[in-house]
Amino acid sequence: MLNKAQTLKGYKLHGLDGEIGTVNEFYFDDHYWAIRYLVADTGNWLTGRKVLISPYALIAVNKEEQYITIDLTQRQIEDSPSLDSDKPVSRQFEEDYYEYYGWPLYWGGPFMWGSYPTYPYIERDREKWREPTQGENAWDPHLRSTYDVSGHHIQAEDGDIGHVEDFVIDDETWAIRYLIINTQNWWPGKKVLISPQWIESIDWYDSTVFINLSCEAIKQSPEYTEESQLTRDYETGLHRHYDRQGYWVDESAAKKHSL
Score class of each variant (00 low, 15 high):
Asn3His: 14
Ala5Cys: 12
Gln6Tyr: 06
Leu8Gly: 05
Lys9Gly: 07
Lys12Trp: 00
Leu16Thr: 01
Glu19His: 10
Thr22Ala: 11
Glu25Ser: 07
Asp30Gln: 11
Ile35Lys: 11
Ile35Tyr: 04
Ile35Trp: 08
Tyr37Pro: 01
Val39Cys: 00
Ala40Val: 14
Thr42Arg: 02
Gly43His: 09
Gly43Phe: 03
Gly43Thr: 08
Asn44Gly: 07
Asn44Cys: 07
Val51Ile: 15
Ser54Ala: 13
Pro55Met: 04
Ala60Ser: 07
Val61Glu: 03
Val61Leu: 09
Asn62Cys: 07
Lys63Trp: 08
Glu64Asn: 04
Glu64Phe: 07
Glu65Thr: 02
Ile68Glu: 04
Ile68Phe: 01
Asp71Cys: 04
Arg75Gln: 14
Arg75Met: 12
Leu83Met: 12
Ser85His: 10
Ser85Lys: 12
Val89Arg: 08
Ser90Trp: 09
Ser90Gly: 07
Arg91Glu: 14
Gln92Asn: 09
Gln92Glu: 15
Glu94Ile: 04
Tyr101Ala: 10
Gly108Thr: 00
Pro110Gln: 14
Gly114Val: 05
Pro120Phe: 05
Pro120Trp: 01
Pro120Ile: 02
Tyr121His: 10
Glu123Asn: 15
Glu123Pro: 00
Arg124Lys: 15
Asp125Ile: 01
Arg130Glu: 13
Gly135Asp: 04
Asn137Gln: 05
Ala138Phe: 08
Ala138Pro: 02
Ser145Pro: 02
Tyr147Gly: 05
Ser150Trp: 00
Ser150Gln: 12
Gly151Leu: 11
Gly151Ala: 09
Gly151Thr: 01
His153Ser: 13
Glu157Phe: 09
Asp158His: 09
Gly159Asp: 00
Gly159Glu: 09
Ile161Cys: 06
His163Phe: 13
Val164Cys: 04
Val164Asp: 08
Phe167Tyr: 14
Phe167Arg: 05
Phe167Thr: 08
Val168Leu: 08
Ile169Tyr: 06
Asp170Val: 10
Glu172Thr: 06
Ala175Leu: 00
Ala175Cys: 02
Ile176Ala: 10
Arg177Asp: 03
Tyr178Trp: 13
Ile180Val: 15
Ile181Cys: 03
Gln184His: 14
Asn185Leu: 14
Trp187Gln: 14
Lys190Tyr: 12
Ser195Leu: 12
Gln197Tyr: 11
Ser201Asn: 12
Tyr205Trp: 09
Ser207Trp: 13
Cys215Ile: 13
Glu216Ala: 15
Ala217Lys: 14
Ile218Arg: 01
Ile218Pro: 05
Lys219Gln: 13
Glu223Met: 06
Glu223Trp: 07
Thr225Arg: 06
Glu226Cys: 01
Ser228Gln: 03
Ser228Trp: 04
Gln229Leu: 08
Thr236Gln: 07
Leu238Ser: 06
His239Pro: 01
Gln245Lys: 11
Ser252Pro: 01
Ala254Cys: 08
Lys255Gly: 11
His257Cys: 10
His257Ala: 15
His257Met: 13
Leu259Lys: 13
